[in-house]
Design a protein around this nucleic acid. Structure first.
Lengths: 196, 196
DNA sequence: GGGCTACCATGACGGACGTCATGAAGGAGG
DNA sequence: CCTCCTTCATGACGTCCGTCATGGTAGCCC
């Protein structure tokens, strides 16, 4: 489980971005948080801050994609609505347990850098794609018709991200519960019937 | 239409936050963008940057609330789905006309400051409330039962905010169109029937 | 053993930041 | 005319930023 200093720096960058955003997260903050040697920065990330943040974003995208696949496989008697509920539950649990300090690193990166760095914006775009893919695949496997599963995956990501922002602003998980309650019937109604 | 320097500074702060986020937006940037005298900063905003950003957030909340009411009154043969479509269309039009540089200032402020400034976080929370209120009121007037109208307003805000983030990351309005297409039947189905 | 590469340490540089101190215009009211 | 208050101007301070230059260690390979 002991990670290399390089990995620790990427993970720390992702965590700090979740809390403070990109601009407010300094490289010195990252090495301190990662308990990594400062001299390693220019060695592992010759591309500077943009490279470090880009790797953090990519890591976050991979992480959430893996988690969706894992969670989708673990639901018993799964339906699209239950999948969405499980995705949201992860955030609900974290907010109630850890507080509302940390949000989604992809949202923070878009908000801070979409207009100033094409590289970072594209990294976030790919991370979102990598997240959307397993969601759409899980929906398809549950019986949602092909084209529809992509649309519903976009809706799920959008509603979740938006509800996360609302929940942080209000310091209350209610928006998360609301979007789940309102979306579940719609999602479950999208399976092409014909079952059992 | 000529605004006072103070108003111009608040508006410029809001616009710059939409593009760069809070941390990357300097006070010198704001006065330059507002073509305002730098010395006025400490005079009009003795509370410093936090006060300036808080006023920008509050202004943005008031602005979007007014616009919702105005747009809701202008739709012919209105339905909840059409209201949502009209709200999203504003962003769709701006993205296609102006590009994807500017996002929602409330999202940017939450992402950058939710963990570090209670004042700013609360200002954003109130701004979201001020936005949600006219949406829920419009839904109620269209025949959506009371409790449900609040829930659907939360869903609409969440889906819109999330879709804005996705659209910026992908430089494509498709997520906006997708959430409208998927949510319209749900929204229109929520009116308590009994009509004509 | 010499050389090469990977990794880490440290200090400096130039610039930008938010804030503040100080002071000057300029009109209003006495 | 003189004073007061709003508004603006300007320069400075201390701090932090991202980046870079330089050099030191440690291990592997010939």
């Amino acid at each position: 489980m002991t990670r290399t200093p390089r990995e620790r720096m990427v993970l720390s960058a992702a965590q700090l971005v979740r809390i403070q955003g990109v601009a407010a997260t300094g490289m010195r903050d990252v090495v301190a948080h990662a308990e990594a040697p400062r001299g390693s920065l220019q060695h592992y990330f010759p591309g500077g801050k943009d490279q470090l943040i880009a790797e953090a974003v990519t890591w976050a995208g991979d992480y959430v994609a893996r988690r969706v696949s894992r969670v989708a496989a673990k639901i018993e008697d799964p339906t699209p609505g239950k999948l969405f509920e499980a995705m949201v539950a992860h955030w609900r649990d974290e907010f109630t347990a850890q507080g509302y300090d940390a949000g989604c690193p992809l949202v923070a990166t878009v908000a801070d850098t979409a207009a100033t760095s094409d590289d970072l914006r594209e990294a976030v775009g790919k991370a979102f794609d990598g997240w959307q893919r397993p969601v759409a695949a899980a929906l398809a496997e549950l019986g949602v018709p092909g084209a529809r599963s992509e649309s519903l995956a976009v809706l799920m990501l959008s509603a979740l991200e938006g509800a996360i922002v609302l929940a942080r602003a209000h310091q209350d998980v209610a928006p998360l519960d609301t979007v789940v309650a309102e979306l579940r019937p719609l999602l479950d109604g999208a399976v092409s019937a014909r079952r059992e």
